[in-house]
Design a protein around this nucleic acid. Structure first.
Lengths: 210, 210
DNA sequence: TCTTTTCTGTAGCGACCGCTAGAAAATGAG
DNA sequence: CTCATTTTCTAGCGGTCGCTACAGAAAAGA
């Protein structure tokens, strides 16, 4: 049952696997599950909601993804790649921590209110009020890891002389995290892209004047 | 069954009601329910968890509080009075919007990490990922009402000349809401009072220099 | 005492939860 | 073709959900 999802690629010919072929596309089914979890969270999304959203029966779901928790873990991974990577990209590509945060907040306003998909951030919301400590903890770890990444990037800037030596990088990172989390919450509560952009712009005023 | 909770006070003598007296104190039972909902949220707190936390049987719960949703509504009301009033107090008592927000954030750092009770804010978290739109919406309305109250207080200051005439009060109010919501989230994620206080202090830097 | 009223405890309702056994269907291998 | 393998579909498992019928217990009033 391990590695049940990956199709082993053969040299040259495609050579389909032995038994009855799967009647659905695994990637699109995963995407449907992602949307369902994103919209309603881990516990409030029942397996029957998942199966009907994914267009498959329950046994197919369990055969292809393990169980509900494993499917959610895979959804979270996929979310990180498809929707949650703008922060890492900003941190990696921008020349300064300040520019990275500014771009991150600006992009968050767009991402969190994008039409045609749930608002806000899956990592922030999908495992709140969750009976399983494992699931709740996995997303909490991700949130705290993000703040730690902010702090590392800021500390680099301090060491490079880009930020004042007495900068409280831990608090500055926490502040950035709070803004992101608050923006996500307000996107869920109906705030528009423009409103979040104005919020982000105000939040940038904590940085030393340019 | 309406008004089943309130004991009608008589002039002079106490005159207990007719039938078998209630074996539990309604207020302390409500407080236990409040803690349970605060900790785990609306849906993740089952009726059987509630009954065992409150120390009563299910029929007693339904007789005294209606149903789960009515109990939650009463809990939210009680929470607003007992734990969620520091914001309104700051807005009402402080001379300026800025002083009110500063005090509110400082107090939020304390309230959201107070020992012996759940961290963060019930209004922000207890109805996320909720199957019932009514319950989810009731808390969302409260959150948006808070931001609207911030905005009104700020607009008063603009009209009084306490804030610049071109202040974007809507964005400033949203920013304050985002900080509060982010602080609550991070309190749930394990941040300490000191960390939240440092976050709050940084957030105050968006206001014009004193 | 007896009746009336209200609350308590037991026991269980129907509905949904996550999950799976087992048979039928669809493919490749021989 | 038959056989082995894998997926699909149907049906349903045990468990928990929110909630309640019912009988007995505990009080006031007659």
């Amino acid at each position: 049952m391990v590695d049940s999802g990956t199709e082993k690629a053969q040299v040259g010919k495609v050579s389909r696997p032995r038994g009855r072929p799967r009647s659905f596309d695994r990637a699109t089914a995963l995407e449907k599950a992602l949307m369902a979890f994103w919209e309603h969270g881990y516990e409030a999304t029942s397996v029957s909601e998942l199966t009907s959203a994914m267009g498959i029966g329950a046994p197919s779901l369990y055969a292809a993804f393990g169980d509900k928790q494993a499917l959610f873990a895979e959804v979270v991974r996929e979310y990180g790649v498809r929707y949650g990577s703008f922060g890492d990209r900003a941190l990696a590509e921008e020349p300064t921590a300040r520019a990275a945060v500014e771009r991150m907040l600006r992009e968050a306003a767009v991402e969190y209110t994008a039409p045609g998909r749930p608002h806000g951030c899956l990592v922030i919301h999908a495992a709140t009020n969750c009976t399983s400590p494992e699931v709740e903890g996995s997303l909490r770890d991700r949130r705290n890891a993000s703040i730690a990444a902010f702090e590392r990037r800021m500390r680099d800037d301090v060491e490079a002389g880009e930020l004042p030596a007495d900068t409280d990088v831990a608090a500055l990172a926490r502040h950035t995290g709070a803004i992101i989390q608050g923006m996500s919450q307000q996107a869920r509560d109906g705030a528009s892209r423009e409103e979040l952009e104005a919020l982000a712009e105000i939040a940038m005023a904590i940085w030393p004047r340019t």
